[in-house]
Amino acid sequence: MTPPRCPPPPRGGAGDIGYYPGCSLAGGAVELDLSIRALARVAGAELREIDDWNCCGATAAHSLNHDLAVALPFRALALAEAQGLGTVLAPCAACFSRLKGTLVRLGRDPGLAERAARLAGLPFQGKVRVVSINGFINGLLADGLAGTLTRPLPGLKAVPYYGCLLSRGEGINEGEDPESPSAMEGAIKAAGCSVLPWNFATECCGGGFSMSKTEAVMDLGGAVLSDAKAAGADLVVVGCPMCHSNLDMRRRGAMPVLYLSELLGLAAGLSPAALGLDRHFTDARTVCAGGRP
């Protein structure tokens, strides 16, 4: 098992960490927002929300208009840079994929950077680093959080679910094998859980088709959870609001599905309610009890 690749600690020097919650974190994925903020507080990391951030465009923008798919993330990145934020945390895997992917493409293609600046009507030098939920949490752990996890959950067997957006795409999974990522493993073990091997770590859950092609989401999400069950898992650990909703809400009752930040928050001794665990559709109380019935 390879150790997790930890990016340089996201705090110190450059000041606050820019926070790009993304739209779902005010609604369907409110527990991701609660648990990220709570975990950052425990670790002493300062999150500063990007003032007036806009939606990244998600799947809809790149499905219908490739200029919009670049211009929307571009505005968010340009705002962060103008507000002096050198590092931006995008805990939602979809936002991370759009922001980071755009940053990489802008760096590679000066023509695109020029067009995006014209479309968005803003300057951007590209001096922003975008961090995922996995990168952020691994950074906090390396920076001292690991030593403060006083309530580990050793009875639990977890499977890390990266899905699409934390495993594939330009710049998404730097240095890791996209077919076999490991960025979540160290953090899950730091929370005291064991990590089980399984087959669906990077399979698709159906993503944004929850309403417009529900039958596909039911099929794909069902297959993910069946494999998790077959592997002997007590819970699935995710970093994506679409994966969470498709597994926790659409497949209600199958298996607890936790954001990585919720799991680490429990291990840090935070209350389930403070982390938003009471807002799940599938009961997560067995996980909160550390696997004891």
């Binding site: 465009g57 499905s63 219908l64 919009l68 417009s212």
Partner: peptide, 14 residues
């Protein structure tokens, strides 16, 4: 069309 409607509704909100 349902899939297109979803994308269009998403972008209209944004």
């Amino acid at each position: 069309r349902r899939i297109l409607a979803f994308h269009e509704a998403f972008l209209a909100s944004v």
